[in-house]
């Protein structure tokens, strides 16, 4: 059975559910503490996940201290070798700060996840949003490989999720788009509220050029089961959730499962 390493930093808080959904997807998973580079490099893993949370209390900037931990040198190396790496929420912030995403100059920071911009409010926003994959995402990115191109919902929960880049890089960014915020029927988001944080180009997830490393703000690990979808959700997934039988609501996957299913397929899980 393939194995994924979930890397926990001081302040991570989504490591258990992330490890759990990996196991449910047919991938063995283990949680490693930030200071367990030895154990991790001895065991290695087939994929790496940086879970959500508030690593090192978001001191300086969200993700920056974690990105300088020794264990990230090892993850960096594995990413360069083509191993799938996923950063969720705070994990995405760590990947941006480590220079793995977008990765034009691996190791150098080429973008930022800035504070949410939304009319009349600031700070944290916890809500479900609609997403769809970028043009090259499904073909390139193992984490997104099971998506079919339709809009699907996932929850977000962050205060700093606005992707920003230098003006001159804006064109280059487009081929790195993993997921964008959209309306329930799949049209591009036109600002708030479908784009919940003011992210440029509606970007919700960004990958490296090879596609093996993905930094995503939404939380697929919290939407693994159909029963986790809000009953008042609009669109296809809302209808599916409201009309499901007892059997289905337990057994049917939620939209977040598609992310882990993609990885499982990529790693050859039957």
């Amino acid at each position: 059975m393939p194995c994924a390493a979930v890397i926990r930093f001081p302040g991570s808080n989504c490591e258990f559910e992330t490890a759990r959904v990996l196991r449910n997807s047919g991938i063995d998973s283990r949680i490693y503490n930030w200071n367990e580079i030895g154990r991790l490099s001895d065991n290695k893993a087939d994929a790496y996940v940086l879970p959500g949370g508030f690593s090192f209390q978001d001191r300086i900037r969200a993700g920056v201290i974690a990105s300088r931990e020794n264990i990230m040198d090892f993850v960096f190396e594995e990413a360069m070798n083509g191993k799938p790496v996923l950063g969720i929420c705070n994990g995405a912030q760590v990947l941006i700060e480590s220079g793995l995403v977008p990765g034009w100059k691996p190791g150098s920071v080429q973008g930022a996840l800035a504070g949410n911009l939304a009319p009349g409010r600031s700070g944290y926003l916890s809500r479900w949003v609609y997403l769809k994959p970028g043009k090259e995402a499904v073909a390139k990115c193992p984490w997104l490989s099971a998506l079919e191109g339709d809009a699907f919902p996932l929850p977000i929960a962050h205060a700093e999720g606005r992707f920003v880049f230098r003006e001159e890089d804006m064109d280059k960014v487009k081929s790195h788009i993993g997921l964008t915020y959209c309306t329930p029927d799949g049209s591009a988001a036109d600002g708030w509220p479908d784009n919940p944080n003011g992210s440029v180009l509606n970007i919700a997830a960004l990958m490296n050029a090879e596609g093996n490393v993905l930094a995503m703000m939404p939380h697929p690990e919290r939407s693994y089961h159909l029963w986790q979808v809000p009953p008042d959700m609009q669109g296809f997934w809302g209808d599916k959730r409201r009309n499901s039988s007892l059997k289905d609501i337990e057994e049917q996957p939620g939209p977040g499962a598609i992310i882990f299913k993609g990885l499982a397929k990529y790693l050859g899980v039957k």
Binding site: N13, C14, F16, E17, R20, V21, G52, G123, Y124, L125, S126, R127, P155, A157, H219, E221, R222, Y224, W227, Q228, P230, P231, D232
Partner: peptide, 17 residues
Amino acid sequence: SYYDSEVQGVTRFRPGE
């Protein structure tokens, strides 16, 4: 909307649903 009511992945009904 400021509260994280889904961390731990065990939430069936969020506030208001």
